[in-house]
Design a protein around this nucleic acid. Structure first.
Lengths: 134, 134
DNA sequence: GGGAGATCGTTAGCTTTGCTAACTTAATCC
DNA sequence: GGATTAAGTTAGCAAAGCTAACGATCTCCC
């Protein structure tokens, strides 16, 4: 199996899937950063998403225009902009999670005990490799 | 772990990695389709890469311009264009494989027998799920 | 044999998402 | 209080998706 093919195809598939929600993969990902947990500054978001600040500016602008997030100025530091998800934004992310979790549950249900053990073991391996290679 | 984040970040990382070869991820992937094995028509490539034909036209044009592939007309059917990798194109793909395989070998070497068994088992599970969900 | 329709690749034009460089505004430091 | 640093934005570029429409070629069928 060609590695590039595999990841690119996965990406393209996610892209199409996300479009059902009316959000591109990048917007979805950025939104999911603020959907739960504390609000983030725009710069934080850019760092989390490993994207330049101008790119994040644009993503947030689109999300704001469509009512998924809101921006709020910091009282103390006039340079900061805080990004928060709206109720609508949280709903979209929640819905996506629900779908994926249904999908996964369906497949996990078909696995026997041995398979599940193997899965847990491999997840640990993957995480170790991921950590080591930054 | 957020799914979108995970795949997007993996994608971005591959993109940066590929740029070391002077080729984008999409070009790399298309090139890898023709690097070994039989030549492909442009339409076949588009289908394999799950991309529209106009998009593949452009990818191939870029690869040809940079000397990674060559186009050849079909004698029988004037509509077909066959795409073949040049020696240079094959070299690039080979080099990429070599790198990844070194990377993987390094990590696999650190695994014990149980881990390796689990890995094989999980790969089978993944392939099953992938097949089922088209 | 020839016309209708299918197929293949391309062109044109749009959108999204990356980037860097340069700017504005605000905070901090000395 | 002036210089430097930091945060976000603007402008402008490139790559990679897409659809619609087009020309060339092949196929099919009367």
């Amino acid at each position: 199996m060609r590695l590039h093919g595999a990841v690119l195809h996965l990406m393209r598939r996610i892209r199409r899937e996300d479009l059902h929600f009316g959000l591109s993969a990048s917007r979805m990902s950025a939104l999911s950063c603020v959907a739960f947990g504390t609000p983030r500054t725009l710069g934080d978001l850019a760092a989390m998403e490993q994207v330049s600040r101008p790119t994040m500016t644009r993503l947030v602008a689109a999300l704001e225009r469509d009512g998924y997030v809101e921006k709020r100025a910091d009282r103390r530091d006039g340079r900061l902009t805080w990004i928060e998800a709206t109720a609508r934004g949280r709903r979209v992310i929640e819905e996506g999670r629900r779908r994926r979790s249904t999908f996964l549950a369906g497949h996990l249900a078909g696995l026997n005990e041995r398979d599940r053990t193997a899965l847990g073991r491999v997840i640990a391996i993957m995480e170790r490799i991921y950590e080591k290679s930054r």
